[in-house]
Design a binder for these strands. Structure first.
Lengths: 231, 231
DNA sequence: TGATGTATTATGTATGCACATATTAATTTC
DNA sequence: GAAATTAATATGTGCATACATAATACATCA
């Protein structure tokens, strides 16, 4: 016990320091929790807390009995916060504006009988994103009562309809005629697209495609963590 | 204590169930940890573990003294795993192939004196992604000794050079002349772009732009979690 | 030799307790 | 009445202990 590291952040900082200093290079096994706890002069639970957090970030790999190793290929694990569009626009210091373009009922291969909505989001008056959404009426019958003229379906759904899980895909697609028209860009211009499907257990809730105006990007960070909290 | 929920997963499942069932709608306060522990018949630490995990996922918001509330706008929090390109290609069941196109030294506004590398990644022979990279020679002098003809800089850096943090941006950009040529697509075609910068403390390590061939998308899921692990 | 069962081991997690800390609410002071 | 002080409270975290569980390593047996 050369030093005292008695908070889990301090332990985590010291482990990170050793990894960065290449005392423990990629693939290298760490001492077991009991030994580390003895060395750091803290409880095993504290070491566990620190190592578990690092494993969740993809920096360490842990297997029962096999022990803890520094990840061989430390996949950059980034956390994306996907806000509602109004918040996204307002976070840029611009005013959000919303126009409903279409609201009809129709059939969708996944949603079944569904409300089909198209809307345009603007930031300071300029086109920001085009929303093309299907809301399953089997799962969300109360959507029929909503006009979606004042507030976006995005926001109303989050606040009033629960979901258990979903999936998102990001891609780059050429602007189709309707997209080019509403986003005031040229046909075939590169658009950043997000396709999202959300479910409540096994029932589809909504399927939405957001086409962002040219110049849009999403940003995030990797490995940003309190570093080396010395005791 | 109506029922016994003595694992943190069981507690988490029950809390999620109540949120989804709208017993606790968005913005609603939860009972404090002591009361929940009494109700669930478990230790407070177990409740804490469950609620902390939900807060990390953005489902709950917790503040000391103020208590725990169901998130008002449960921002979809998605975790992206950004693998090295070889793994990404091989995960699709294709064979990865790599060609170094350029390797010169030059100056970069952020990296300073740097190694400039351009390379093409292929999947089953078809262009997959174009890599345009600067490696700071002040931070990574040993890069000079690497030819980068056999293995990608991507992989070598991860295995041999530590970094503490970085940032990533995703966007859609029209193909420039060199991109169109190497990715065998037309000028101005929509490309999915990732720009990444990594740092070791305050020193830049590498700056890389990956331009993916048309049709590429990244996918992830939200809220995918073991649900309702009953006791 | 090869398959199978068993012991060992490192992590995973529950418990009860204690104290730390942030933040709100109440109270006092000017 | 406003500002500063104090008290109350919910979460945050540490510790020691115990047992659970997964996975490896070893021994056993056909």
């Amino acid at each position: 016990m050369t030093d005292q590291f008695n908070t889990w952040q301090a332990v985590q900082g010291e482990v990170l320091r050793r990894i960065h200093a290449r005392d423990w290079p990629p693939g290298h096994p760490l001492p077991n929790e009991v030994d580390l706890a003895a060395e750091f002069g803290c409880a095993r639970a504290t070491v566990n807390r620190a190592l578990r957090a690092l494993a969740e970030d993809g920096i360490l790999e842990r297997r029962r009995k096999a022990g803890t190793h520094v990840a061989l290929h430390p996949v950059s694990r980034a956390t994306l916060d996907i806000p509602i569009i109004r918040q996204e626009v307002e976070a840029k210091g611009k005013t959000h504006d919303y126009t409903l373009l279409l609201r009809v009922t129709g059939d969708h291969p996944i949603c079944g009988k569904a409300l089909h909505i198209t809307a345009l989001h603007r930031a300071d008056g300029a086109p920001f994103a085009l929303e093309d959404r299907w809301i399953s009426l089997a799962t969300v019958p109360q959507a029929t009562d909503q006009s979606f003229t004042d507030h976006s379906a995005n926001e109303w759904l989050l606040a009033h309809v629960p979901y258990t899980h979903g999936d998102i895909a990001f891609s780059a697609q050429p602007a189709m005629a309707s997209e080019a028209e509403h986003l005031k860009t040229s046909l075939g211009a590169p658009l950043f697209i997000t396709d999202r499907t959300t479910w409540d257990h096994d029932r589809p809730v909504t399927i939405v495609r957001l086409s962002y105006a040219p110049g849009y990007s999403i940003r995030t960070t990797i490995g940003e963590r309190p570093y080396s909290v010395l005791p």
